[in-house]
Design a protein around this nucleic acid. Structure first.
Lengths: 166, 166
DNA sequence: CTTGACAAGTTCCCTTTCGGAACCCATTCT
DNA sequence: AGAATGGGTTCCGAAAGGGAACTTGTCAAG
């Protein structure tokens, strides 16, 4: 399977990854959420090769995650800003960040803390059920085919037949 | 910046991406959460080149996200299972999945629905504040240096100086 | 008028990684 | 003995990435 085929997969994760599932893309988005908007700023902060940066910004723009907004004419210069679609990636970034804080920090602890403006506490994100509000974990959900499922789609429900689930 | 340098970055997102920030790795993890555990199963379901799969499984195992568990001796065969550290990636996968459902589904809607066992409803994840329980979005948080911050670390707080924030 | 600076790319070359297919190896089945 | 099974490794050509130099449009300084 190639990159270009990913977005035709019948899987929302695969489709998401066709947009953001790349080495640099999520780091570019991290910068966007930190209010970085200009080509040179991205380049200097990330140490990314310029043509790779140009490619990622172009793809993110085409995907509707970023938009180019002119901030001056003559010479025309544009900066990149998150769209609504891009802002909606925040929960995903936050979840990855929280995992890194928890499992990848050194002895000293996480390098960056996030404080919830509304309550004033240093906080992390807890995924909760949109319907009942209870916290969710890996085993709290079951999968089932949805309206966009291809014909004959099967959701694997059990471990490999000869394996005994612990 | 190269791959190998990513895990030395003072950023939890970069460190997380040094483990899972690759084209295939998150798809391998998707399969893990669907209870796929064996080399051949991963290969057939993903259509990934075998040596790339071997490499990703090795790296995930070394990172402590998966562990190899023997399911038979003579010949010795092992399968890959999520560790606690791996299971803790569920919120991140779920957030990416939900974003894909929302923004990348075709007209027909998402291909796979997730039902919350506890309440019985089809649901998605809502990130909420660990301290006050309110839902979080992109602008609800501020960043500040934490205990693991490098000396002289600066959190960008404002847009580029000449830009007017909309 | 020429030179320089700036921002945002683009081009070039060389190295690394990937996709696809073939091959390997220990063990069991027929 | 020969084929099958599971989990890899090896090889090749193609694609992507790293790094540096070059381009373009415009203004400001000398």
């Amino acid at each position: 399977m190639r990159w270009e085929e990913l977005d035709r997969e019948h899987c929302s994760l695969a489709r998401t990854l066709s947009v953001v599932g790349d080495r640099w893309t999520l780091l570019v988005l991290r910068e966007c959420f930190l209010r970085i908007r200009r080509f040179e700023e991205f380049e200097q902060r990330l140490g990314i090769a310029r043509h790779v940066l140009a490619d990622r910004l172009k793809k993110l723009t085409e995907a509707g995650v970023l938009e180019k907004i002119p901030y001056q004419e003559r010479p025309r210069r544009e900066e990149y800003r998150l769209t609504e679609k891009g802002l909606a990636l925040y929960p995903a970034l936050l979840a990855l960040l929280d995992w890194g804080d928890e499992y990848m920090s050194g002895k000293k602890g996480p390098p960056l803390l996030r404080r919830h403006k509304a309550c004033g506490h240093v906080a992390h994100a807890v995924p909760t059920c949109s319907e009942c509000g209870e916290p969710l974990d890996a085993r709290a959900m079951t999968a089932e085919p949805g309206p966009g499922a291809p014909a004959g789609f099967v959701v694997p429900q059990r471990p490999s037949k000869s394996a005994v689930d612990k």
